[in-house]
Amino acid sequence: MKRLLYAVLILFITAQTGFTDDKDSAKKILASKLDAAIAVLQKKNMDQKEKDRRIIEIVTPIFDFPFMAKLSLGRKNWPGLSKEKKEKFTDLFIKRLEASYLEKLALYTDEALVYKTPVQSGRKVEIPTEVISKDKIISMTYKLYKSKRNWKIYDMEIEGISIIVTYRSQFDQILEKGTFEDLLLKLETPENK
């Protein structure tokens, strides 16, 4: 009888994993990376620089930073640029994104992270998460798409505010009045601090 039970269990498990949904695999990948990043963040005896370095190392594989750079300029502004400009912009933008992600992650350090049911539409999956503390609940939605190899993040929304949309509005505004060089300069030199 015991053997039969095992057999059934194995059958049951394989039947399930064999047909795991896309969105579940996306969620699994995201959760494994985020949990690892938060574990680093919560380490007590490690200096901030080392923490930042490790977190970026952990999350970089699931963020498609170069694609995010391209998306933030959009089809209106990206295609006309020379190869050098694209590269320079991508490099600077990635630095900005990394810093901003670290800052936002650190804002909600010792709080619980809850993954909600992902929503799939075609090759995109949105994974809503909630950062829960005693005082407040902050919603963070990770938006992933399926690239040839894996699931990758192409945008993030915090309380419904998309990172890409926010950058787009600023880039549009800067390019409306100024040149691409102005934009690069602004990207290079933070206005604040």
């Binding site: 600023q170 602004k186 990207l187 933070p190 206005e191 604040n192």
Partner: peptide, 15 residues
């Protein structure tokens, strides 16, 4: 955090 990640904080906040 919003201000530090922004290139143009006024536009970023509006958006």
């Amino acid at each position: 955090a919003l201000k530090n990640s922004a290139l143009d904080p006024y536009v970023a906040l509006r958006n």
